[in-house]
Design a protein around this nucleic acid. Structure first.
Lengths: 209, 209
DNA sequence: GCTGACAGGATTGTCAACAATCCACCGGGA
DNA sequence: TCCCGGTGGATTGTTGACAATCCTGTCAGC
């Protein structure tokens, strides 16, 4: 399949938002047939990563900041649901691993390893989703996440962000560990609400990219 | 396009869940080319209405009751978000129309016009989404709704349901009219939580359809 | 009678050629 | 100079044929 290759290429930023995706180019780029390329474009269009207009071809979807906020708002409530369910289903072993991730995060913040913190951030969210085992919510969050990787990328490197989000993450972990669904949902929502704030603050700095 | 035709046919129940969708049959059924049929199947697969397995063709997706609950759980939180935002943005005119829908609902319950009540139910939810103007949430809810029309169909005709859901709907309307986002979200979540309960109760009656 | 391999048909996957469409460029006229 | 219509090249849309795969029914061997 070419779909994952093209997806990765877009997510890595090898194609810029708004850039045209010409079928012939992609054929040589991935040494695939046109049939395969078109299928991949269709798939990614349904994921919201590319936009296809009839007779006008495919572009990498450009998400405005307003859209990014919308997407993150939905992520906020869905991940809240996920956190609540994770709190209901977490096993002792999983709780231990959550605590460990929390520890690593704190250490990464202390040593200012921003990239590592960003990775742990993703790992935490992913692990919570795994604990929840909510297939429907999982798919949606994954799709939404893909739509704004480029925004998130800039976000995690904002100065001061880790200091803000670390305690939020720790609260999420604590609530799940304590098997308190309501607190877990609130903590997760508060966390992502602050992500939205940060997103909005970027706008005033002159927009993402 | 054949996609809407096929979608409608599935939603109307002309193809039963689990039924095989043979391309050749669909070609004659919709007098469309195979290319078009395949595109439609792909589209509906990305909407979750159809399931395609490589070399094994497409089936109408069969959603288990557990999945239906999952789907409705996500709908619960996303429509909660929508209700909150509707409460922030509702105009006076829209508030008036909301009240009117509420009135019609109450009347439909009193006269036991179940089908009419079900229609008004959809109209209310749709109108709230329109007020909210949240494109991302809107798409997701619409997609999710499509995935369990067959369940909902049986649900709205359950005896006693209207009496339970009417006051919930009225609370949603009141909260939005009063421009109270938090109350609107709570009311909407409570309402859909009760839908989930009703869904679960069906299981004990021997499954849906 | 039962199991397993093996055709045969049905169904889907893939391709390459052709048709339709759009876009940018060019030239003529006001 | 500016506007407008036409034209050619590039790009996407669609078709039909062919290849690969899977499922079903059949038959030989145990």
């Amino acid at each position: 399949m070419t779909t994952p290759q093209l997806r990765d290429a877009i997510l890595r930023g090898e194609f810029l938002p708004g850039e045209r995706l010409v079928e012939a180019q992609l054929m040589t780029r991935f040494s695939a047939s046109r049939f395969t390329v078109r299928a991949a474009l269709q798939d990614l269009a349904s994921e919201g990563l590319v936009q296809v207009e009839r007779n006008r071809g495919a572009h990498v979807r450009k998400v405005s900041l307003e859209e990014a906020v919308e997407i993150t708002e939905v992520r906020m409530v869905v991940e809240g649901l996920i956190a609540a369910r994770a709190a209901e289903r977490v096993t002792d072993e999983q709780a231990g691993e959550l605590d460990e991730i929390g520890l690593l995060m704190r250490r990464a913040v202390e040593t200012q390893e921003h990239r590592r913190y960003s990775d742990l951030n993703q790992r935490l969210h992913g692990f919570v989703r795994q604990i929840a085992g909510h297939g429907t919510a999982d798919r949606i969050v994954e799709t939404l996440r893909g739509q704004l990787v480029r925004h998130q990328f800039t976000l995690s490197l904002l100065p001061g962000r880790p200091q803000i989000s670390l305690p939020q993450h720790e609260r999420v972990i604590a609530a799940i560990r304590d098997r308190d669904p309501k607190a877990a949902e609130t903590a997760m929502r508060d966390h992502i609400a602050s992500v939205i704030e940060a997103l909005r603050s970027i706008e005033q700095l002159g927009g993402p990219s």
